[in-house]
């Protein structure tokens, strides 16, 4: 079985978010980039399939050489081969088109992506990819079992879960729950050394056209000082929530 894991490379969760050039560009200086947390859950599950079922695990990323350390880390964790489609990730549509073109000429049994990337929170690449390939898609995936040619994938819905069955190939958009935090792997020395020998292919882009463009950023307005209410006077809190905040 061949599994492709789509990796997006995002600012670490503790990053301060700032903008430059009159708020038109994200300030990436001093920002630590990491594997998108949702993708790391997916990669971990893929490596589990590799160990249990002998699957081959490839990773793919649409982006510039700046992402290479993130991709090397995926190899160190256990992926067998990396592909980078060599073009900046412009928007969800163009990334999905680049990925779809790649998969059309390099078929996989299962394509694992993250629920969303934590920078632009688009949650669009995996669904668009599935639609472009005309194969099933399960988002918010928290459970996955594969049986030969079919997969049963569980997705989180508002207030519950739904189990869906479909034939492979399939795209899933996964999140925590597919594996737990304690299952995540930290690359060890051996993994890091091995990663240097693993194949890393640079793929020429299709030059897909973006459908959207981010033109300006804004930071939320500074919050007014919190109003503290003494613990002995909760009536005051109820009064404030009722009359001032209008939420009761």
């Amino acid at each position: 079985m061949n599994i492709l894991v789509c990796i997006s490379h995002v600012p670490d969760t503790t990053s301060k978010i700032n903008f430059i050039e009159a708020n038109t560009v994200f300030e990436s200086r001093d920002v630590q980039y990491v594997i998108n947390p949702n993708d790391e859950f997916g990669l971990t599950r893929a490596i589990w399939f590799k160990e249990k079922l002998g699957a081959q695990v490839h990773i793919i990323h649409v982006g510039t050489p700046k992402s290479d350390p993130t991709l090397r880390k995926c190899l160190a964790i256990g992926a067998d081969k990396a592909f980078r489609i060599n073009t900046p990730a412009l928007d969800g549509v163009s990334v999905a088109q680049e990925l779809a073109a790649f998969v059309k000429s390099n078929p996989y049994d299962l394509i694992i992506a993250g629920r969303e990337s934590i920078d632009y929170n688009g949650a669009m690449v995996p669904g668009m990819l599935a639609a472009l390939l005309d194969i099933p898609f399960v988002p918010n995936c928290v459970g996955l079992d594969i049986d030969g040619t079919t997969a049963v994938a569980e997705r989180e819905i508002d207030g519950g879960r739904e189990k869906l069955k479909g034939s492979l190939p399939m795209v899933i958009g996964c999140q925590k729950g597919l594996v737990e935090e304690s299952d995540l792997r930290i690359p060890n020395m051996r993994g890091i050394m091995q990663a240097r020998q693993k194949p890393f292919e640079i793929v020429p882009p299709q030059e897909a056209i973006a459908a959207t463009q981010d033109v300006k950023f804004e930071k939320p307005a500074e919050k007014a000082e919190v109003k503290l209410v003494p613990a002995e006077d909760l009536d005051q809190l109820i009064d404030l929530l009722h009359k001032e905040a209008n939420v009761l």
Partner: peptide, 23 residues
Amino acid sequence: SSADAKFIAPLLAAKLNAGYAPN
């Protein structure tokens, strides 16, 4: 922006060749 809406939206955008802006 429900889980279901966010499930349909990218499928639909790809079928319609549409740009999609969430949130």
